[in-house]
Design a protein around this nucleic acid. Structure first.
Length: 640
DNA sequence: TGGGGTCCT
DNA sequence: AGGACCC
């Protein structure tokens, strides 16, 4: 019965190898061959396999990672925008082969049953792929390997087809499909992935993590029990820390142990749903279909920090988060036509507990109103959110995470003319010149100064006396992503000392003041940017502490405070409006590049500070974008 | 431990 | 609104 073709499913679980790290390497080819870690705040959240082989696992602190491997290249990955875009590409490739259920940006299950059936329709198809296979001995007569499966170059001409059951036949054909899918992903997106092939989502996922990176594993029917029996119960997707603790209390460590517990006992301790789920799971059963979950049910942005204890500081953070949220909501609306009905605010306070506190309210209509500028809508979001905070926080508080988001999406019918108008308006907005940026509530200098204080005090303190290389890119009117910034590309020859302060906060303020007092822009030549130095050179200089050379090279640095940088540009865009006939001719709305560095620090201190920052060469996609603008350099330097 | 998400209660 | 889970 279970073997009846109608029950057979072939499920593939895909897992992009160290997704963030691979993404960074792909966008910055000079990182290839080097150990790379992607950081968020003080954490290295992912490392590539080179780094892992040199002893740096994922999810370790930056300090720890650097201690183990000083040569580790760190790239900041707090902004998920590029990862989201790449994930979308990958999922689109998967979608050509069947229904995809994604989980996170880098994983997904695909039901490839239909593909397999189509290939079996004309008899047994030719197979030619490489895979680890569990249960190989039963279908081949060759000796097998129980830990991780036998690595096989499958050649269908050598298989004894009579010995192979319907399920296993389907799984082998599925493995052929998966092999082709992996090639397609790599060819079309550049990404390598690992993959598991099995009869259901759970088994496919477990199989996918068996051989990494860039390998696929097929779990044949005869090996299912042997494979899962020794696994810790915790390995079952859906069993987390709490459930594990309860199971341990029941004397359950492995899946074998779990099998001995009755459904009743499990349900008693964990509830009927989880009880039944565990009962099935430890027997390798998972009947849940692969379901396309559609667009996200919530869109949120968040930031973490150390020292937010006043409402003013919280507002400063919200002012950074809100524009990001607005932008993502606009993009979602163009794609899906729906609109969110609720605004949520979540925060976490300092303390031992991991607790998030959340409140939600009706999302104000102005937030989505096409008659308001993005900036005005962001200001609305900030106001509403800070009022929510004010209502829910006592006089004294200490926030460490702040999250603002939208949920409760409702479809807006596309036949409604008003909705169509809004959609076309939003679509057109991406193609039309940007409106003048008005800083709504922050026009007087004092308020702005306060805001800077807020920003800087709310963010973790960076090393002082550091070199900061900044740049923000020109964006042609026709480009779809008007807010793309190329952080940190530049040229030291173009670098002007705008601050004498050794304190970063003062530096920012100096910079703002000087901009206001008539600092002028000029346009350097394009060669400044095309000769961007390779990462390797910069890195070698870092290693050998040649700080002087480094300062005079065309190095690229990423600011340690991208949020602050962004805020800076938003608040100063009026004074930074650069005058250039070129830019006007090119239809460029706003361009600029600026550098400042502090002078009081000695060179070794500077070198130290540099070493703590990420070296981020211009990525190839950025380069391409720049070149696509006809060789016009839309970047400027603030000149004294 | 980040910056996101899901679903269930 | 919060909890447990996932990456």
């Amino acid at each position: 019965m279970a073997d009846s073709p109608i029950d057979i499913r072939v499920i593939a679980h895909f897992d992009i190898d160290c997704f963030y790290a691979q993404s960074e390497v792909l966008r910055c080819p000079s990182l290839r061959g080097r150990p790379v870690g992607v950081t968020q705040k003080f954490l290295v959240v992912t490392t590539n396999y080179i780094a892992r082989s040199l002893g740096v696992p994922k999810m370790v602190s930056i300090d720890e990672a650097k201690k183990v491997l000083p040569a580790l290249v760190l790239v900041n990955g707090e902004d998920l925008t590029p990862y989201r875009a790449e994930s979308k590409q990958i999922m689109a490739v998967l979608g050509r082969y069947g229904v995809v259920q994604r989980s996170g940006l880098d994983e997904g299950a695909v039901d490839i049953t239909a593909q397999v059936k189509a290939r079996l329709q004309c008899g047994f198809p030719a197979l030619s792929f490489s895979s680890h296979i569990l249960g190989w001995e039963a279908v081949s007569g060759e000796p097998g390997n129980d830990s991780g499966g036998t690595f096989v170059n499958v050649d269908s001409t050598k298989l004894e087809l009579e010995k192979i059951s319907g399920v296993d036949t389907a799984l082998l054909v599925g493995s052929q499909v998966v092999s082709e899918m992996r090639s397609a992903i790599e060819k079309e997106t550049g990404f390598q992935c690992s993959c598991g092939v099995a009869q259901n989502k759970m088994l496919a996922k477990l199989a996918s993590s068996l051989n990494k990176p860039s390998k696929q594993t097929c779990l044949l029917s005869g090996a299912v029990e042997r494979f899962i029996a020794p696994l810790p119960a915790r390995k079952i997707p859906g069993v987390g820390r709490q459930t594990e603790a309860i199971l341990l209390d029941l004397g359950v460590q492995t899946i074998t142990d779990l099998k001995k517990v009755s459904v009743c006992q499990l349900s008693e301790r964990l509830g009927a749903r989880i009880g039944q789920f565990l009962y099935d799971a430890c027997r390798g059963r998972d009947y849940t279909p692969v379901l396309d979950k559609g667009p996200p049910k919530s869109i949120t942005v968040e930031d973490s920090f150390r020292n937010c204890t006043t409402l003013q500081q919280a507002e400063g953070i919200l002012r950074v988060l809100a524009p990001d949220l607005i932008k993502r909501l606009d993009e979602d609306r163009v794609e899906t036509g729906r609109r969110p009905k609720s605004l949520t605010l979540k925060w976490r306070v300092q303390g031992p507990k991991w607790n998030f506190i959340s409140v939600s309210t009706d999302l104000p209509v102005e937030l989505l109103s096409p008659s308001l500028s993005k900036e005005q809508r962001a200001a609305v979001a900030v106001e509403v959110a800070s009022r929510l905070l004010l209502r829910n926080l006592g006089h004294s508080f200490h926030l460490v995470v702040l999250n603002i988001g939208a949920t409760n999406f409702v479809e807006t019918s596309t036949s409604d003319p008003a909705v169509r108008d809004i959609r076309s308006f939003l679509q057109a907005q991406g193609n039309s010149p940007r409106k003048e940026l008005k800083v709504t509530s922050k026009n007087d200098a004092r308020a702005r100064r306060e805001s800077f204080k807020t920003m800087t005090s709310a963010l973790p303190a960076g090393p002082t006396g550091a070199v900061l290389g900044l740049n923000f890119s020109a964006v042609a009117d026709s480009q779809k992503t008007p807010d793309t910034h190329i952080f940190g590309s530049g040229h030291v020859g173009d670098e002007y000392q705008l601050s004498n302060s050794s304190d970063e906060e003062d530096g920012w303020r100096d910079l703002a003041d000087q901009l206001k007092s008539g600092v002028r822009a000029s346009c350097p030549t394009a060669t400044n940017f095309t000769q961007t130095q390779s990462y390797k050179d910069v890195s070698d200089q870092l290693q050998s502490q040649q700080s002087t050379d480094l300062l005079h090279s065309k190095s690229i640095f990423k600011t340690s405070h991208p949020a602050k940088l962004k805020q800076f540009f938003v608040e100063n865009e009026d004074v930074m409006k650069l005058e250039s006939p070129d830019s006007q001719r090119a239809g460029v709305t706003n361009t600029g590049g600026l550098h400042f560095r502090t002078q009081t620090a000695g060179s070794s201190r500077i070198a130290n500070s540099i070493a703590k920052r990420e070296v981020v060469p211009e990525s190839t996609s950025q380069k391409k974008k720049r070149k696509s603008r006809n060789g016009t350099l839309d970047a400027f330097v603030i000149r004294k």
